[in-house]
Design a protein around this nucleic acid. Structure first.
Lengths: 125, 125
DNA sequence: CTAACGTACAACCAAATGGTTGTAGATGGG
DNA sequence: CCCATCTACAACCATTTGGTTGTACGTTAG
C-alpha cells in the first residue's frame, strides 16, 4: 500500500532526527530569513564554529538545507520542499490515526457488549 | 497567547526524537490498529522485551502513547492529539518558509528558552 | 606575496542511545 | 497455594552524538 509514501525509512529518520534539536531548528529559522554563511551562523550560538558546522551537516544530510558557495563563504539556505516531506511523513501516521480512531469510535459507539473490547488478539498467535 | 502550547522546546525535542526511529514509528502504527500489550508488541520485533519497553517509554515521554493497565497487562495506545502537536510544530517551521517573518518572530520569542540557546540576535552587531 | 578569513576535516572526549541480561514485584489461572 | 506470565528496573556494554581543539587548504584583501 504505502509503497513510496514511507519512502526510505532512513530519510525519515534523518529528517526527524535533524528536527529533534533546538539549535538546528533555530538554524533553520535563521536561514529562512536569508542566506547566511556558516561563520555568521556560528557567531549566533554559544558553541564553536566546528560544532555549528556539524549541525549544518546534519541538516544538509536530512535535506533540510543546501549550501551554496560564494567566494570563500558557504551560504546556507533552507530547502523549501523539505518541510513538505516532513509533513507528508507525519500525514502517513496521522491519517492512519484518524481513520482508525474514527472507525473505533463508531464501533465503540454502537457496541453494548463489554467483551468486544479486546482487539489485541487479532490474527496471529 | 493561546499558542503557548509550543512553549517548551523540550517537548518538541522529545516529539521529533521519538519519531526519529523506525521501530518507534512502527510501534505507533501498530498501536493505532488497536491497543496492544507490551509483550505482544515485543513479539513483533527482533529485540528483547526490555528494548521494546524502552521504546514505548520514549514514546510515552513524548506524549505519543499512553499506557493503560488491564490485569497484568499494560495496554499501549496512541494519543490522537499527539500527531496534531507534531504537525503544529512543523507548521511553525513551514510558515516561516513561506515568508511569514512577523509571525515567526513571535514564535521565536516564545521558544527562546533561557538554557537552550541565547542567540543574541546576530543582526544588531 | 602575505596575511587574514572562511571552510573542511581529523582526533579526541563526555554523555546519551539502543541494545543486552538479570532480578524482582504483581497478577491471574489451575 | 504454586506457577506461569507480564511488567518494571538496574547494571552493563557498544555505538552514536554533540561538543571541543588543532591543522590544513582555498580565497580574498592589502
Amino acid at each position: 500500500m504505502v509503497v513510496d509514501g514511507v519512502a526510505a525509512d532512513d530519510s525519515v529518520d534523518r529528517l526527524f532526527h535533524a528536527l529533534a534539536d533546538a539549535t538546528r531548528r533555530d538554524i533553520l529559522r535563521r536561514c529562512v530569513r536569508g542566506e547566511l554563511s556558516v561563520s555568521r551562523l556560528a557567531e549566533a550560538y554559544p558553541m564553536s564554529f566546528a560544532a555549528v558546522q556539524k549541525h549544518v551537516a546534519v541538516l544538509e544530510r536530512a535535506g533540510l538545507v543546501v549550501k551554496e558557495r560564494r567566494g570563500r563563504e558557504q551560504l546556507v539556505r533552507t530547502d523549501p520542499g523539505a518541510v513538505d516531506r516532513a509533513r507528508q511523513a507525519l500525514d502517513e501516521l496521522g491519517t492512519a490515526w484518524r481513520g482508525r480512531v474514527e472507525r473505533m469510535s463508531r464501533l465503540l459507539a454502537q457496541e453494548a457488549d463489554p467483551d468486544v473490547n479486546h482487539p489485541t488478539e487479532g490474527q496471529d498467535r
